[in-house]
């Protein structure tokens, strides 16, 4: 195989793994056929964005953009499928979420390495916050373009002033 092509393949390998892992997890989360495929696409996109971000910057920064991309994808998929965006959001952020970080934080605090635990804990919270912020912003952006049925009906009947966020 020519080197350029194998270079592209090695770039695509990780998003592919992320997508396949997500498809397994979305089955565990109760999604059905077409939704599973859509959600896997979202997580592959998120991981591709994460990979494309410069490695020198802060990891939370890269995760933010990955979550933003996955969130926008989820909003579009939700409009196409006429289902709540959260179905695709929760599934597509599975590879991004700091589950491993939480585990290592707690493990190092049990082992008595307090500094390492604080360091890992802070970076875990930063990552989770970056994902949440990315999803919130993608939600606001989507709301500017499309209108969400259930809330707009409730708003029209003057029941809520909320929610403009998330």
């Amino acid at each position: 195989m020519n080197p350029q092509l194998s270079g592209i393949f090695s770039q695509l390998k990780e998003p592919l793994f992320a997508g396949l892992a997500t498809s397994a997890f979305s089955v565990l989360f109760g999604l059905h056929s077409a939704d599973v495929i859509l959600a896997s696409g979202g997580s592959a996109l998120g991981w591709a964005v994460l990979q494309a971000m410069p490695q020198s910057g802060s990891p939370a920064f890269a995760t933010f953009f990955a979550a933003l991309a996955a969130g926008l994808y989820a909003e579009i998929a939700a409009r196409v499928r006429r289902r709540p965006a959260t179905l695709y959001m929760i599934a597509s952020i599975i590879p991004l979420v700091p589950g491993g970080g939480m585990y290592y934080t707690m493990l190092s605090s049990l082992e008595g390495s307090t500094y390492r635990s604080v360091e890992l804990g802070l970076s875990t919270i930063m990552t989770a916050f970056a994902i949440a912020a990315g999803l919130a912003i993608s939600n606001v952006l989507a709301r500017m373009v499309f209108s969400s049925t259930i809330y707009s009906i409730l708003k029209k009947r003057k029941i809520f002033q909320k929610p403009d966020k998330l």
């Binding site: 929760i90 700091p98 491993g100 970080g101 939480m102 919270i125 989770a128």
Partner: peptide
């Protein structure tokens, strides 16, 4: 361990907090 860890839970916790 990824099958067990509460990664989605902590993210949802922060999403709830951001939403008020």
């Amino acid at each position: 361990i990824m099958l067990l860890v509460p990664g989605v839970a902590i993210t949802n916790a922060i999403r709830d907090t951001i939403a008020g």
